[in-house]
Each structure stands twice: as C-alpha cells, then as structure tokens.
C-alpha cells in the first residue's frame, strides 16, 4: 500500500501542488493526469524518494520511504522519461546488469523476454543504434523481468506503437490482478475500463502563488 499525506511540492519558488493526499491499494492501476508542467514527474520523483517534499510524508506499508530506502527500492520499479539504458551497451548487456544488481529481477531467459518485447534479432546490437521506440522497449523489458509489487512509470508509452501499448495494458492488468500497483502518467487514452483504472487529476493552482 502506498500512502501519500498532504504532499506539497515547490519548484523554483512556485507551488506545483499543495496538500495532495492519496492512498493506492494493491491491485490498483492509477493514472496521473494533467497538463504539461503541472507536476506529474515531480510527484513521481517525490514518491520514489529522489527528491524530498516541501511538506508531507510518503509511506510504503506504513513506513516512511526514506527510513529504509533499501527495503523500499526492493519493491519498486521506476521507469522515467530517461530510460536508464546505457547507449554503448547492447540490449542484452543492459538487462543483464539490472538482473544481476536487483534481487527483484528474476532469473529468466533474457533472449525470450527480448523476443517478447519485439526485439528478437536485436539482442547484440548496441542500443545507441536502435530506434527511439526500440530503446524504450529495452527499458520496458524490465517489466517482464521483475517481481516488484510497485511499478511507477513516467510516460511509458512514449515512442511505442499501438500494438505495443495494447500489450503493455494487458501486462498492467495482469500485474494488478496479482496484487501489484501501477502508477503511471500518459497523455494517450488508455483502453482500460473504469473498474480497473482510477485517476489522480492534477490541476494548475488558481492562485499560482510564491512561497
């Protein structure tokens, strides 16, 4: 369970959002919506503990996340705008690195997983030479590898084709059915129905005041 209490985020002396509280229970898929610059990525960076909130607390299973980062990070898979894939390594080497460093990444056959994300035949090519969509797919392959309950995905569908989006949506449903949490942002319309998908809508504050 992920619980955020009264989060306030301040960027460059400007309040992005104030007193934001929400609880995400196992089995939920939550989409954060809002126009550009409203603070979706900032919210995610707070939730994963990369930046600290101006005010408020974030709890994972009732423990503040910064109390025991290593425990929290065992349960977390975060994919950001920047994919974290090294351009000078091959797709296979990139995944092997994550597999060896993260206990949550299962010991599955990487060739099979790369074939699953549509990269069969590209395993040994340096990722810098792949297209933007293919590079994103290398990063997304980690979704099949790990058994973390909490997935936080910032714009996972960027540069992904329609059939790829479909596959990912099904994967999210499967993950939620197993008691996992998916927290994501996207500007695309998801075809998930309301039963499965809930939304957090961020709006530009009326009084865009300064602290």
């Amino acid at each position: 369970m992920l619980r955020c209490e009264k989060l306030t985020c301040v960027r460059e002396d400007r309040v992005l959002f104030k007193d934001l509280s929400f609880v995400i229970k196992p089995g939920e898929i939550v989409q954060v919506e809002g126009p550009n610059g409203v603070g979706k990525t900032s919210l995610f960076r707070l939730v994963i503990g990369l930046s600290l909130p101006y005010q408020g607390d974030i709890f994972w299973q009732d423990t503040p996340i910064t109390d025991d980062r290593e425990h929290f990070y065992q349960k977390l898979l975060y994919l950001g705008h920047k994919t974290g894939i090294k351009p000078e390594l091959t797709a296979l080497e990139n995944l092997q690195f994550f597999q060896k460093l993260q206990p949550s990444h299962k010991n599955l056959d990487l060739w099979e997983i790369l074939a699953k994300v549509g990269l069969a035949g590209y395993e040994d090519i340096i990722t810098a030479q792949l297209s933007a969509g293919q590079q994103r797919r290398v990063a997304l392959a980690r979704l099949w590898l790990n058994d973390c309950p909490l997935w936080i995905l910032d714009e996972p569908f960027t540069a992904i084709d329609k059939s790829g989006v479909k596959v990912l949506e099904n994967l999210f449903l499967q993950h939620a059915a197993q008691g996992g949490i998916v927290l994501l942002t996207t500007h695309q319309d998801l075809s998930l129905d309301k039963k499965h998908l809930s939304k957090i809508i961020l709006e530009k504050p009326q009084d865009n005041f300064y602290v």
Partner: peptide, 15 residues
C-alpha cells in the same frame, strides 16, 4: 545523469 542510469543506480536496493 543524461541517460537516466544515475537515477536507476540511486534506486538500487544497495547502499
């Protein structure tokens, strides 16, 4: 930092 692997390194379950 530019390709995002620094963030991923900081999110590893190791010190």
């Amino acid at each position: 930092f530019i390709d995002g692997s620094l963030e991923q390194l900081m999110l590893m379950p190791h010190p």
